[in-house]
């Protein structure tokens, strides 16, 4: 798994990247009440705003960790946004991107780097 400094995670399988927000982000946001996802088919560039996640008192943008086309979204979050709190790195995934440029993966943080980054924040 790879990470961004905006607290998104990415898991790559072939040319497909699954994207979600990290357990740290989910914890900081508190109870998530709504997730706004893009239409499948949308093309995004790395660091574009691609989704919005809302708690009661805050709305935060989720940025595309990689460029490509959104090919699938986790529609179940519409009915059950609480999944993001329960399983941020699993069933609470947001969307899948067909990767346009694999070299962008190099801009992302490793697990270890991200942990260090988070510790630095507190």
């Amino acid at each position: 798994m790879k990470y961004t400094d905006q607290h998104e995670w990415v898991e790559v399988e072939g040319d497909l990247a699954t994207v979600g927000i990290t357990p740290y982000a989910a914890e900081q946001l508190g109870d998530i009440v709504y997730v706004e996802l893009p239409e499948p088919g949308k093309s995004v560039k790395q660091k574009d705003e691609v989704a919005v996640v809302e708690s009661v008192k805050a709305a935060s943008e989720v940025y595309a960790p990689l460029s490509g086309e959104v090919v699938e979204i986790n529609a179940s979050l519409g009915e059950a946004p609480e999944t993001v709190n329960a399983e941020p790195a699993g069933a609470g995934w947001f969307l899948k991107i067909k990767i346009a440029d694999a070299s962008e993966l190099e801009n992302l943080m490793s697990e270890e780097a991200y942990q260090q980054f988070v510790e630095g924040l507190d």
Partner: peptide
């Protein structure tokens, strides 16, 4: 992306 808030948990 983070905005930290005081939390009230559904549970």
């Amino acid at each position: 992306m983070l905005t930290k808030t005081d939390k009230t948990h559904a549970s």
